[in-house]
């Protein structure tokens, strides 16, 4: 089972990993332990691999720092479901192979702390009260995620998505 970590609107990348805890300032081996250190201090300690983040509008706004989604990946976040994503965060997360779903109905149906099961490949979410079929990401995003990461994609196909 996966725990839902629910957040509000406009979660910025300074909240996900503050600039002073960047790998550049600390190290590759520890920066992800500071995820949400001020916004939600219990998160990094208690999150389990396979858990999912659910958020409102504009998740990941602000800085271009890829170490924000990278921290979430290193902590084992299996997917992020939000009303919408900020554009650089969206690119970075997909490039790193983190499945993202934009689905307003699912966001409003899910509560913080809820235990769910997510079938990422089929976008199927099983909750205590039933099943939710998530809106599928665009085809080029599905292609990248199927390969793993954008680096895996380029190494396998030798071309960009849509080329």
């Amino acid at each position: 089972m996966a725990r839902v970590w629910k957040f509000g609107d406009d979660v910025d990348t300074d909240q996900i990993v503050p600039g002073r805890y960047a790998p550049y300032m600390t190290s590759e081996a520890e920066f992800f332990r500071y995820a949400f250190i001020e916004h939600r201090p219990e998160f990094a300690q208690n999150v389990r691999p396979g858990d999912i983040i659910v958020a409102g509008d504009n998740f990941g706004c602000g800085s271009s720092r890829e170490y924000a989604p990278l921290a979430l990946k290193k902590l084992g976040i299996a997917a992020i479901i939000a009303n919408s994503f900020a554009r650089i965060f969206f690119r970075n997360a997909i490039n790193l192979g983190i499945p993202l779903f934009e689905d307003r109905a699912a966001v409003s149906a899910l509560a913080d702390g809820e235990e769910v099961e997510l079938d990422v490949a089929n976008g199927l979410l099983r909750t205590a009260s039933g099943q939710i079929q998530l809106r599928k990401p665009p085809a080029f995003v599905q292609e990248i995620l199927a390969a793993g990461t954008i680096v895996d994609y380029l190494r396998r196909y030798g071309r960009f998505p849509g080329e």
């Binding site: 271009s64 720092r65 890829e66 650089i88 690119r91 970075n92 490039n95 790193l96 380029l154 960009f160």
Partner: peptide, 17 residues
């Protein structure tokens, strides 16, 4: 603006998408 991976790809290929 883009993240580290996209910029690495631009460094390596001179292109982006």
């Amino acid at each position: 603006g883009m993240g580290a991976t996209d910029v690495a790809i631009a460094f390596a290929t001179g292109r982006t998408w």
